[in-house]
């Protein structure tokens, strides 16, 4: 399959914790720091609320990349949530890599409420990475394809 990167519009799901990263994304917005419209944010109370099931579901439904953003280690609103997220995602991402969903398609990033610039930069980088990897075909639901 040939991928024309000019036309490729990746689907990217970003899970952002309510306290740090979602606020960081808001700050990126109010500071008018652009990133591609391919990124769609889902608000969760904490990065530890992100069930691996959600990520598998996203890839199955045709997402090309999934990023989880939470508070910096030590700054979690719920004290320890981001540590659980970090461990779970490390495990899940290595399993996904084994299944053919490359490590570049998944990412965990710590973005504080004050880091609008970092949020925008991270999303730009991530989208660029997904562009270089192309469409995700490994976990897609084959029944949906012609």
């Amino acid at each position: 399959m040939s991928i024309n990167n000019e036309e490729f519009r990746p689907k990217i799901v970003a899970f952002c914790c309510n306290w740090c990263s979602y606020a960081g994304a808001d700050l990126a917005g109010s500071s008018r720091l652009a990133y591609p419209a391919d990124v769609k944010i889902i608000r969760v109370p904490c990065s530890c609320r992100v069930n691996p099931m959600f990520i598998l579901r996203a890839f199955e439904k045709g997402a090309d990349g999934v990023i989880i953003c939470g508070c910096h280690p030590g700054d979690c609103h719920y004290s320890t949530g981001n540590y659980y997220a970090r461990r779970r995602m490390t495990l899940l991402f290595s399993m996904l890599d084994y299944m053919g969903v490359e490590n570049g398609r998944t990412r965990v990033e710590w973005v504080s409420a004050a880091e609008g610039v970092k949020f925008s930069q991270t999303m730009n980088e991530f989208v660029e990475k997904i562009h270089s990897l192309g469409e995700n075909v490994r976990l897609g639901d084959l029944r949906c394809k012609n």
């Binding site: 689907k11 799901v13 769609k40 889902i42 969760v44 109370p45 609320r49 069930n51 099931m53 959600f54 579901r57 996203a58 439904k61 045709g62 997402a63």
Partner: peptide, 15 residues
Amino acid sequence: FSNRQIIAEVDAICR
């Protein structure tokens, strides 16, 4: 923020 709710959001975004 139930599992079903978040999955519904994921589905809507990836549709």
